[in-house]
Simulated scan of single mutants.
Amino acid sequence: MPKPLRLALLLTFPGVLAAGSASAQEQQESMILSVSPKLVRWADVYKVRPERPDDPYYHVRVIERQKNWKVWQFNELASHMAVTPKALEASRIDKKAKIYNYKDVEIRSAYHRWLDEPATRSEVPVCDTDILSCIKKLPPATE
């Protein structure tokens, strides 16, 4: 099940990032989902503030990276997924790992499309258990 490698701009962040303002009205954080000696998986989590009544979800992009890869190499497991607050909490782990911040234009664009065009929401998977379990149920990515 090899996934394509992507090139991106990057900034390094040790450990789990605290929530911070990515823009005046958008909160963004990164959270570790799993850590092994060879692989790290994390989610970049987005939420517009103040919350909108028509969007009770968090929106995530899920990334995995083998520890021996060059810093610009990674697999995107989900480019955009809506996640319930309960599923987001169920996905959090206490482990820390070195993660990277890759260019996020695609997730931001997809998330704003979700907000601005409600008819497109059926195209986005909604996770209500935990992120890694939901990733396993997604169809294989096509490029």
Rank of each mutant, 00 (worst) to 15 (best):
V126D: 09
R113S: 06
S133A: 15
W42T: 12
K38M: 08
Y100M: 06
L17Q: 15
E64G: 15
K137Y: 09
S109T: 07
T84I: 02
Q28D: 07
G20R: 01
P2W: 01
Y111G: 11
D44W: 02
A87R: 00
S91M: 13
A24Q: 11
D44F: 00
N75K: 04
K47T: 07
K38R: 09
S122W: 02
I131Y: 01
P14N: 04
P56L: 09
L10R: 06
M31H: 13
A78S: 15
M81A: 07
K98M: 15
E64I: 08
V35G: 08
Q25A: 03
R52C: 09
L77Q: 08
D44H: 04
Y58R: 02
G20S: 00
L132Y: 11
P140F: 02
L115S: 03
W72P: 00
A97F: 03
C127F: 04
V45M: 02
V16F: 00
R49P: 01
A90I: 07
Q25C: 02
M81W: 06
S21D: 14
L33S: 06
V124R: 00
M81C: 11
H59C: 02
M81D: 07
P140R: 01
S79Y: 01
E106S: 14
P53W: 04
Q27K: 09
S34Q: 13
P85M: 06
L33P: 15
M31K: 10
P125L: 00
K70A: 08
P4A: 01
E123N: 06
E106M: 13
K136F: 04
R41G: 09
E64R: 07
R52E: 07
A8D: 11
T120E: 13
A22L: 14
L77V: 13
E123L: 05
P56V: 12
Y58Q: 11
L9F: 08
I99V: 11
P4M: 03
Y111T: 07
R65F: 11
K47I: 01
G20N: 06
R121V: 00
Y111S: 07
K98D: 14
Y102L: 00
H59D: 13
S109P: 00
E76M: 14
A22F: 04
F13T: 13
S23R: 05
E51W: 06
Q73R: 05
E64C: 12
I107F: 03
Y100P: 10
Q66S: 08
R61G: 14
V83S: 04
A119M: 01
P2T: 03
I93T: 12
M1Y: 09
R108W: 03
K96Q: 15
F74H: 14
N68H: 10
A19M: 08
K98T: 15
